[in-house]
Write a protein that binds this DNA or RNA. Structure first.
Lengths: 337, 337
DNA sequence: ATGAAAGCGCTAACAT
DNA sequence: ATGTTAGCGCTTTCAT
């Protein structure tokens, strides 16, 4: 296996010069550099040797931590981050933090330790201790979909998004509006469902609409539980004419349940979702789109910036959402309402 | 930062013993090991130090290479692999190989070089040269969705899957059956579309059904292009009574197009997909399910096995698919056919 | 079963 | 601008 020594020999220089040349440092003669690059290519020597780690203390890779990696939202963010990181020549280490048992959890920061130069944490604060242990790594952290004073963050305004979804329903004449929200006993203290619920309630109140607790059902942000929750809601009296679902997947679950009951959106009930899931278009679902992939990219950029200048303080970005009106919501007449 | 030296001091032993104890090697007294583990935990010293790389030559991580990482199929496989690898204490390095420019491509194996102990390559053979350069790394490689004599592989029988999808349509009385297939000018020499097409044609021939080339349209395995292709097909004469789509996403695109034209599956045209996409249930799509996540897990296991015993030859696994009948296909009467 | 010491392949500090 | 020489933090002989 060709190492830096072989390359040095081939180019007729010292290993130190090879190291400098390949990393684009100053004070290397252009012709020398050319020779070295030629030698490196010939021996297919890597531009960033993996073993550089030990000597330099930098790993040239960043960790991405997420509770799920195959769900739409997460895979989009990861994809965005991957692109930005690879462009910058950084490797991406993937860490899924959902199913680990207690004892292993205790070791989390030790897993990460020394393996990554920075961390991107997607949308779920683990327990406080776990989070502290991440902070204690002393490396830059960028949060996606959350905020924390000590970390950079990229997120949307969930309250505003929920507001415009709800306002859309109100504008269309709906007065009896239901809510499909996250479980109150969510295992994670996740702010997203809370914020989306808050925005919803604000708009109801501002428009003088009465809120009936029996118009709310809960899901866990998947289609499956949402469909079941919807069954439940449909069985209750005072059926709403429209429903705001805190995620597109839940909205699609709701629509599925509707169909099972011989009902249809928007004819029988209007449905608005949240996220901009790729399948929302297929379902003709009205929704609030968020720039998911972009959020991953920006998180990556933000940590790379901080890797360059460790002293700037971590930026907090809020990206815009867009109401996309499709065919799952409709205007209703005053008599219907 | 606590290193092996600190742990050694704390435990009152040498660094060599710490190294041995923490990696579970033989010839370490139980009580010594206990002391060392305690010291390590106290100083939050990682079980598998990242810098072990240099000295041992092993990186304790495997690379996952995929052309996309946010598409459903790929994210599922990655998720499965991640679980299996993490359980075994291996890190997962993610490499997306789609958008890289020519010159960078040339450097691919150099990117990987020395960074991973093994490779899992998902569903797309890059160019032959790129593949050769991966092989030349001299590390175990597991393929998902493809085969190669020198690599382990985990796949399904695409021909058989396509056969049972098509047979299902035939069994329901369809005689004029259309095909939504991959682009013939696919940038990758991807065997999946070819195999699925082959299975389809076999069943048609076996049942003495005539094949009309104008019943075939092409997509790129996404909803979007499929919808457009479907528009095209619907505009042609001799409209088929059923269509086999080579992927669920294409099937959903087709159904979307159908709706736009005021048509509906299965009433106007029966649609059968392929993959077992999570949204297939929502769409009530009849499909061929493949155990996607499991394929990722098995690929991981297979390389870990080979990491242990380098001399066994790479296993080639074929996992079963299942026909799941939902509501996008229906039996038609002889008069209709 | 444990320790001492010689690397692993590279980078960094110091020469020149 | 380039070479020399210590390390980096760990693993792995080889002793004991």
């Amino acid at each position: 296996m060709a190492g830096i020594k072989e390359v040095a020999e081939e180019a007729g220089v010292s290993t130190a010069t090879v190291s400098r040349a390949l990393r684009g440092l100053h004070h290397v003669n252009d012709s020398t550099r050319a020779k070295i690059i030629a030698a490196a290519e010939k021996l297919s020597y890597p531009l960033t040797p993996s073993t550089a780690n030990t000597a330099s203390g930098r790993t040239n890779s960043v960790g991405v931590v997420a509770p799920y990696i195959s769900r739409w939202y997460f895979s989009q963010v990861i994809s965005g981050a991957e692109q930005a990181l690879r462009e910058a020549g950084l490797d991406l280490l993937l860490y899924n933090f959902s199913q680990m048992k207690g004892r292993e959890r205790l070791f989390q920061h030790q897993l990460l330790k020394g393996r990554v130069d920075a961390l991107i944490v997607i949308s779920l604060p683990p327990t406080v201790e776990e989070f502290d242990s991440m902070l204690s790594l002393g490396i830059p952290i960028a949060l996606v979909g959350m905020e924390h004073e000590k970390c950079a963050s990229v997120k949307i305004d969930d309250i505003a998004g929920a507001r415009s979804a709800t306002q859309h329903l109100v504008n269309q004449g709906h007065k009896q509006i239901g809510l499909m929200s996250g479980r109150p006993d969510d295992p994670f203290n996740f702010s997203v469902p809370q914020d989306r619920r808050k925005g919803f309630m604000q708009v109801l109140a501002e428009n003088g609409l009465e809120w009936l607790p029996q118009r709310e059902v809960h899901g866990d942000f998947t289609m499956h539980t949402a469909a079941r929750a919807m069954d439940d809601l449909l069985a209750r009296p005072n059926r709403p004419t429209a429903i705001f679902c805190e995620s597109d997947e839940m909205a699609m679950g709701a629509m599925q349940a509707l169909r099972r009951h011989g009902l249809k959106a928007p004819d029988d009930i209007s449905i608005v979702g949240f996220d901009g899931h790729e399948m929302a278009e297929f379902s003709e679902l009205t929704t609030i789109e968020q720039p998911v992939q972009l959020m991953g990219e920006m998180a990556a950029w933000s940590i790379m910036e901080r890797l360059r200048k460790p002293n700037i303080d971590p930026p907090s970005l809020v990206l815009p959402t867009t109401l996309v009106v499709r065919n799952s919501t409709r205007r209703i007449s005053p008599e219907e309402a």
